[in-house]
């Protein structure tokens, strides 16, 4: 199974699962609207009938925070709290849907109905939550080891308060180069669970490592490629969002459509990574279910 064929097969499977992706997108949108809408309502009530909102048209003039005064502090507090809350809920939501997606990508053929998708998500939710948390913990430890420790050593050696010089960038690069491995393990272990129906987290991770070793460079290469493309997409989206300042009603609406379309693309791209890993593992086993 070649590098490009794996990527292509993954893409085909992902594209055919567009309905599932749309379900994920809608859930996410409703969730984030729950936090975003009060923000808008708050701003409208603060500014009332004022024309000062003209000063927001070229981006946010921080002076307006001073104009708002005390309520601005309240706004920051509630937005922060809302972000944490929605972030947590969003995390759970994504873990939930990952269950359905991996189920879909382990099917040899055919499609998953939305109801089956939700059912698969629900069934595998708890083990997926554990494995996600475990993998995030491993990645956090890896980060601490590869970036935290060298930074600490550099600070201790140089005696300054911040790691200075360009030396630390080398460790950022090493960290980034190692990340696809962990993502492969995270994806392959979830694939193993979805395929076997097992709920054993550590066995899943063990299986994933074995799968990784089998055709290491292909596995690494495909995840690396997909992650880089995802990264570029995320940067492009953030860049677009930061710099676009539509100031007419219709333009704001179009901006909303455009950004949400980009979110769907991003969700597809992420699902593509799952699909590609499933493809790779299944192909090396020569079968859909181990």
């Amino acid at each position: 199974m070649s590098f490009f064929k794996t990527l292509k097969n993954g893409a085909t499977v992902t594209a055919s699962s567009y309905k599932l992706i749309l379900v994920i997108w809608i859930s996410m949108l409703v969730l984030t609207l729950a936090a975003g809408y009060p923000l808008k309502a708050f701003m409208n009530s603060i500014f009332g009938k004022s024309m000062i909102t003209e000063r927001l048209n070229d981006g946010f003039d921080i002076a307006l925070a001073g104009e708002i005064g005390k309520p601005f502090g309240a706004l920051v507090t509630s937005v922060t709290a809302g972000t944490v809350l929605v972030g947590t809920a969003g995390f759970i939501l994504m873990v939930f849907f990952a269950g359905g997606l991996f189920r879909r990508f382990t099917l040899a053929e055919g499609r998953l109905k939305v109801s089956e998708f939700l059912k698969a998500s629900a069934t595998s939710f708890m083990p997926f939550l554990w494995i996600t948390l475990l993998m995030m913990l491993i990645i956090a430890g890896y980060t601490l080891l590869v970036i935290g420790v060298p930074a600490l050593v550099m600070v201790l050696v140089s005696g300054s308060k911040m790691p200075s010089g360009n030396g630390i960038y080398i460790f950022y690069v090493i960290w980034a180069l190692g990340m696809p491995l962990w993502l492969f393990v995270a994806d392959a272990s979830r694939r193993w669970m979805a395929a076997t129906g097992s709920r054993q987290v550590f066995r899943a991770i063990g299986a994933a490592f074995r799968a990784l070793r089998e055709r290491f460079w292909l596995n690494y290469g495909i995840v690396f490629a997909v992650v880089v493309l995802n990264l570029l997409l995320v940067l492009a989206i953030l860049w677009f969002a930061a710099f676009a300042t539509p100031d007419k009603g219709i333009m704001v609406f179009l901006f909303f459509i455009a950004t949400q379309a980009l979110v769907v693309v991003r969700l597809m791209m992420k699902a593509w990574r799952y699909a590609v890993v499933c493809e790779a593992v299944q192909q090396q086993r020569g079968e859909a279910i181990p």
């Binding site: 949108l29 009938k49 909102t53 048209n57 969003g90 995390f91 994504m94 909303f256 950004t259």
Partner: peptide, 29 residues
């Protein structure tokens, strides 16, 4: 003004939503 301009608030809400969506999609592996 009789017709206050609400576009900035809407735009900021849109950006805020997008930012949260991206954040969720990035931090959930």
């Amino acid at each position: 003004t009789y017709e206050p301009d609400r576009t900035a608030a809407r735009r900021m809400m849109n950006k805020f939503i997008l930012l949260m969506q991206m954040m969720i999609s990035i931090f959930t592996i």
